[in-house]
């Protein structure tokens, strides 16, 4: 079967057409009165709101807070996930005792815990960081655990004959192998970190993107809700781009897809 690859340009052109048609239709529907702006707002109003937020600088404070919570959650979650994964994979005893527990905890939908976290850790950033790390730690834990358990025994045998001491095995074989897996799950864990922070803010906070949307909702301000969502999409897209760059930088030994 032969399928001609559609050109890059054509794809981008069609994407553009789709976007313009969607936004244009929305805007015109709102102006013509088909779509009640109270419920559906309009692209023009959303754009105006975004400019207003940018002009008074408030949006950057919210973005900053959310990113900060997310980064703390991601960093703490990643480091503890790696440490736990390493320990449980290396020690038969710890692994035997705790691995099923981790699987069990992982099965709990953690978003449901968000109200509890807010109860325990307050309305400040701590509860958001905890929410975020609670999501990240499992992704990284399982990536590390599997990577170390599944590392090719031939590589370990080769390293040992080449004279590797236990420390060399860790740094030259186990960690690089685990890093490949952790990088593969990087997109997921960064996404989870963002979701954790935003959900935490949404349920109870005084700052951040989640708070922004939740506040607009409580005011029945559809424009504010949409504008907040647009900012989240931009933030998520930016993070995705940065991760893409990090991935290409660090996984040089992987054949490019």
């Amino acid at each position: 079967m032969e399928t001609r690859q559609p050109s890059h340009r054509l794809i981008w052109f069609l994407r553009g057409v789709l976007l313009v048609a969607f936004l244009g239709g929305w805007e015109m529907g709102a102006r013509a009165g088909f779509l009640d702006p109270f419920f559906y707002s309009s692209p023009g109003a959303i754009l105006a709101r975004l400019f207003q937020w940018a002009a008074d600088g408030s949006i950057f404070r919210h973005i900053g807070i959310t990113l900060w919570e997310m980064m703390l959650g991601f960093a703490i979650g990643t480091v503890s996930g790696m440490l736990l994964g390493y320990l449980f994979a290396r020690s038969e005893l710890l692994g035997g005792v705790f691995e099923p527990l981790m699987a069990l905890l992982n099965a709990i939908p953690r978003l449901v815990l968000a109200p509890l976290f807010i109860l325990w850790f307050g309305l400040g950033i701590t509860s958001k960081v905890v929410m975020s790390l609670a999501l990240v730690v499992f992704v990284v834990f399982f990536a590390t655990y599997t990577a170390i358990k599944e590392v090719d025994p031939i590589l370990i045998a080769n390293a040992r004959i080449l004279g590797a001491r236990p420390r060399d095995l860790t740094w030259h074989v186990l960690v690089p192998s685990a890093l490949t897996w952790i990088f593969t799950s990087l997109r997921t864990s960064v996404g989870f970190a963002l979701i954790g922070a935003v959900v935490g803010e949404y349920l109870g906070a005084t700052k951040g993107l989640g708070y922004l949307v939740s506040f607009a909702e409580s005011m029945f301000d559809a424009t504010g809700v949409f504008a907040g969502l647009v900012v989240m999409v931009i933030v998520a897209g930016g993070l995705d781009y940065v991760i893409g760059r990090i991935e290409t930088r660090f996984s040089v030994w992987k054949p490019s897809r």
């Binding site: 031939i154 590589l155 080769n158 004959i161 074989v173 690089p176 490949t180 030994w253």
Partner: peptide
């Protein structure tokens, strides 16, 4: 010195 039947090079080096 040991040459393995399988590929035993470190893919990240």
């Amino acid at each position: 010195g040991f040459m393995f039947q399988q590929d035993a090079l470190f893919p990240w080096k």
